[in-house]
């Protein structure tokens, strides 16, 4: 009998292969338990207050603050490398290096050529991703070669660091320092 997939099963399947005609299936084996760790994080996120379309910006800001506080509390012991484990980080570094130095690298590097920063801000796990820090486009040809993420989380590039961010909470979940060549 046909049975609908649970949301977590569906999320796990996102890592399984290509979702677009321009992308090749991503082999998850070299990433170790990265997908399981992401799935666990998303499960945590889904049990928190969630954002909905609102006319008042204040309602969005307040909900986001509550979400961020609860995630911080639940992950109070989180450390850099918890999700980007040494094994996963090695594979991310390898793929990033390939894309940034291989054929078409000039266009890829051009995408991240204007890194911007916020004075006095430091990248930390569970830290804020400042509202006024502009986003660097993550090169799409890199994204085509990386595990696709569920909608709650996103990859970011800040300077030479490769970052995993909670989109709604604007929270840094984990990062790989100096991942970009």
């Amino acid at each position: 009998m046909w049975k609908p997939l649970s949301s977590l099963t569906a999320l796990t399947l996102l890592f399984a292969g290509a979702v677009h005609s321009q992308s090749a299936p991503v082999d998850m084996q070299p990433y170790g338990d990265f997908s399981e760790k992401i799935t666990a994080y998303v499960k945590l996120h889904q049990n928190m207050p969630s954002l909905r379309p609102k006319r008042q910006r204040k309602q969005i800001v307040d909900t986001r603050a509550a979400l961020r506080a609860k995630i911080r509390q639940a992950r109070s012991t989180a450390r850099q490398g918890d999700i980007f484990t040494p094994l996963a980080a090695e594979e991310f570094r390898r793929v990033i290096h390939t894309v940034f130095t291989g054929a078409g690298a000039a266009a890829v590097r051009d995408t991240v050529k204007d890194p911007e920063s916020v004075k006095g801000w430091r990248l930390t796990v569970n830290g804020d991703y400042p509202e006024d820090l502009p986003v660097t486009t993550v090169p799409p040809t890199l994204l085509l070669r990386l595990p696709t993420l569920p909608p709650e989380v996103t990859y970011r590039i800040i300077g030479r660091d490769f970052v995993l961010q909670d989109k709604e909470a604007r929270l840094v979940i984990d990062f790989i320092p100096g991942a970009l060549p």
């Binding site: 979702v19 677009h20 992308s23 986003v135 486009t137 993550v138 994204l143 085509l144």
Partner: peptide
């Protein structure tokens, strides 16, 4: 969203 054109967005667009 050209800040983040991931395979999911490209698949949706196509």
């Amino acid at each position: 969203d050209t800040d983040y054109l991931d395979p999911k967005q490209l698949a949706w667009f196509e």
